[in-house]
């Protein structure tokens, strides 16, 4: 049995699946490079490098067999970075390509699809919520900069929304948990990937924005004291997001 490692990207994972089929590999687990859990010592380590070509071929095959929507669902579920999501998707693809039932792809509640479907749903849920929770600050050079730390790897899914909304602004969103981000120059070009080595300095510079104070004030005065409901607040706005929300940073008058 093999413990296959790959570079943690979706294309990398598809290359793994491609090689599993091509070389008839006996796979025990699939480990992304970011994984910190110890390698299973009873399995033989095996490395598969990412190949664009095999990833593209597999994508085409999935689209032919099941449609673009399913490929998107798999991609979104993969972004959950959940332990073992690779094996779940592999199990689904095995069943899909075994051609036992031609209608298999249309069933969202099959034993293999349902867990993937539910995972994709919670990734999309976080993506939708995060669209509102990105907080830009104006930097000294006039760029609007935001730092996020989402649970799932959703930054790429969100970029299209901000590109549409702030088409003529210069902005950057940075996922400091995963160490990458995107910069948009406001001139209609595609946002470009960035990395920021001196995150601490950048974070300090965001504090100088004077509108943060006004926003915090607004947040305080819009709440109705008689209706205070900390439990509901935590359910709607989980504590793990508060770190990058200035309105939850200020000492609150109540709560």
């Amino acid at each position: 049995m093999l413990s296959i490692s790959y570079d943690s990207s979706f294309d990398g994972f598809l290359s793994v699946v491609f090689e599993i089929y091509r070389q008839h590999l006996d796979v025990g687990e699939i480990r992304p490079d970011r994984s910190e859990s110890p390698c299973n010592m009873f399995m033989q380590p095996f490395r598969i490098e990412t190949s664009d070509e095999s990833a593209q071929r597999l994508k085409r095959a999935i689209i032919n067999q099941a449609g673009l929507e399913i490929l998107n669902t798999l991609d979104v579920a993969f972004r959950s970075e959940e332990d073992g999501i690779e094996m779940k998707i592999l199990a689904y693809l095995r069943k899909l390509f075994s051609e036992e039932d031609s209608r298999y792809a249309k069933n969202p509640t099959s034993d293999e699809m349902l867990p993937i479907y539910m995972t994709a749903r919670s990734v999309r849920h976080e993506e939708g919520g995060m669209l509102g929770m990105v907080r830009f600050s104006r930097m000294p050079d006039g760029t609007y900069f935001a730092e996020i730390e989402p649970k799932y790897d959703i930054l790429e899914l969100m970029i299209g929304h901000f590109r549409g909304r702030f088409a003529n602004e210069r902005w950057a969103i940075y996922d400091s948990k995963r160490g990458f981000g995107f910069y948009h120059d406001g001139k209609g070009r595609e946002p470009i990937p960035i990395c920021i080595p001196n995150m601490r300095e950048v974070a300090a510079a965001t504090k100088a924005d004077e509108f943060v104070r006004l926003w915090q004030d607004y947040y305080q005065s819009i709440a109705i004291k008689e209706r205070e409901n900390p439990k509901l607040l935590r359910r709607c706005l989980p504590v793990r997001y508060w770190k990058h929300l200035p309105e939850r940073q200020a000492p609150s008058k109540w709560a």
């Binding site: 919520g129 929770m133 607004y218 819009i222 900390p230 607040l233 706005l237």
Partner: peptide, 30 residues
């Protein structure tokens, strides 16, 4: 859609930006 040379669009599902301490969604400057 964002107007030509302008700022902002509207998303038909609506977006909540934060929740106040009484648990109500804040999405507009009210």
């Amino acid at each position: 859609q964002v107007p030509g040379g302008g700022l902002g669009n509207a998303c038909s599902a609506g977006i909540c930006h934060t929740w106040s301490s009484d648990g109500r969604c804040i999405s507009l400057l009210k």
